[in-house]
């Protein structure tokens, strides 16, 4: 995939250790919001992109990256970029597994996503019991990037991370 992020190997483990403030089991690398990280005369230049335009976590993420890099001896400059626009396709498989374990159903492919969000098919897997007998409760949940579902087998509600493609 040509849109794989370009991250300097020295900076990778540091960035990998920075969690998303709202979903702390997910590293910002797994979320796919770090698009580029390079070293220029000992200064780390990091490009990040927001998941959603209004994502209130971006400032915090920027600060967290700066702090983590500082602790490892790097000065840094964080740059917020808009293009190309973030997509859930950039979320790593490791990230998707972590989400599910955390109780949030990870994004599926766009076709299934549309069917699920239109209430046409029961396909989103409940992260609690694994059943697909689930239905949409609301297209928006605790954050703009998630929808709310209910499992008709274990009767629990859960968040589903919507596809953004």
């Amino acid at each position: 995939m040509n849109d794989a992020p370009d991250i300097h190997p020295e900076l990778f483990p540091i960035l990998k250790s920075v969690p998303d403030p709202e979903i702390p089991v997910l590293s910002i690398i797994d979320l796919g919001i770090v698009r580029k990280a390079e070293l220029k005369s000992d200064k780390a230049l990091v490009d990040i992109t927001p998941t959603y335009s209004g994502c209130p976590a971006m400032d915090v993420i920027g600060d967290d990256i700066e702090k983590a890099l500082k602790e490892n001896g790097y000065d840094s400059k964080i740059n917020l970029i808009l293009a190309p626009a973030w997509t859930t396709d950039w979320m790593t498989d490791e990230g998707k597994t972590a989400l599910k374990k955390y109780g949030i159903a990870p994004p599926t492919d766009s076709v299934s996503d549309k069917k699920a969000l239109l209430g046409e098919e029961r396909i989103i897997e409940c992260p609690h019991c694994g059943s697909r007998n689930t239905k949409l409760v609301s297209q928006f949940a605790s954050t703009a990037c998630k929808a709310m579902f209910k499992c008709d087998d274990c009767l629990e509600t859960f968040d589903y991370f919507k596809c953004l493609i």
Binding site: Y52, G54, S138, Q139, F140, A141, A144
Partner: peptide, 20 residues
């Protein structure tokens, strides 16, 4: 609760877009 959250999420998207 669901419509409250949905509408304020939409508000957040719109304000985010406004900022850009």
């Amino acid at each position: 609760l669901e419509t409250d959250i949905a509408l304020t999420n939409i508000a957040l998207d719109l304000l985010g877009q406004t900022r850009t």
